[in-house]
Design a protein around this nucleic acid. Sequence first.
DNA 1: TTTAATGCAAATACTTTGCAGGAAA
DNA 2: TTTCCTGCAAAGTATTTGCATTAAA
Lengths: 130, 130
Amino acid sequence: MTNNPTRSQMRIDRILKRLNRAISAQELYTELRQANQSMGLATIYRSLEALKIQGQVQVRMLPNGEALYSSAQQQDQHHLTCVNCGTSIPIDECPVHNLETELENTHKFKVYYHTLEFFGLCSLCQLAAE
Amino acid sequence: MTNNPTRSQMRIDRILKRLNRAISAQELYTELRQANQSMGLATIYRSLEALKIQGQVQVRMLPNGEALYSSAQQQDQHHLTCVNCGTSIPIDECPVHNLETELENTHKFKVYYHTLEFFGLCSLCQLAAE
DNA sequence: TTTAATGCAAATACTTTGCAGGAAA
DNA sequence: TTTCCTGCAAAGTATTTGCATTAAA
């Protein structure tokens, strides 16, 4: 935390800030490689882990066990995810900011970010289910 | 969906309903084995998948990529999770029910359940960070 | 020179899939 | 008999770790 950021951390932080979407470690690895700016996969994971602990980076776990990383500066982004087909629809609403402040006080917990995801059946899968 | 539940699905559904907490597939496997009611790991995963699609079971992904399953009848349970030490504190509050109904209407999406998790630093890790 | 960061490869852990045997209809 | 379920073992995937190398201080 008091630690100086490494070069890799700074590179990744910069990329995530430019990019306006969440990206997986694997994808980051592939993209960097294609751009001839390769970075070892282990380094990518280690950097993301460090940035996460510093609160620079948010993580969202997909139902398949893959982690998606994005800059903490990114706006809240939540989703409706279909448990059947996996389709994920981004939504704009987010009703939890007040609660966040409240939790920081009652639990003396410094909240970096939150994840809010809805799971169920998309309209297509509801039809297919009949 | 129109499918009849298998024996395994019914067994697992029953267990999850009794149990008042979320459990991983691996733990379920171990517990059943110890209770001399073994079930193959593949069957456990397949049953959980089916129950999930039917909306009988909720899933929450842990930051380590492990999935925690619980009965859909279970009450909402959300957490404050420390990005540093991994400690997870259950919280009671949940401000998203109205939104859920709203989303069902605007997106024609049948919401089974949602996950809401807060990430940051617990009080201890805040101290350690200085 | 001393310390810390990096990359590669091996190891880990969870989950999924292929397939043969077995139970139910 | 026919269909579906189940278990085992093998494969797949994301992630972590050990260690030798390299870069920075």
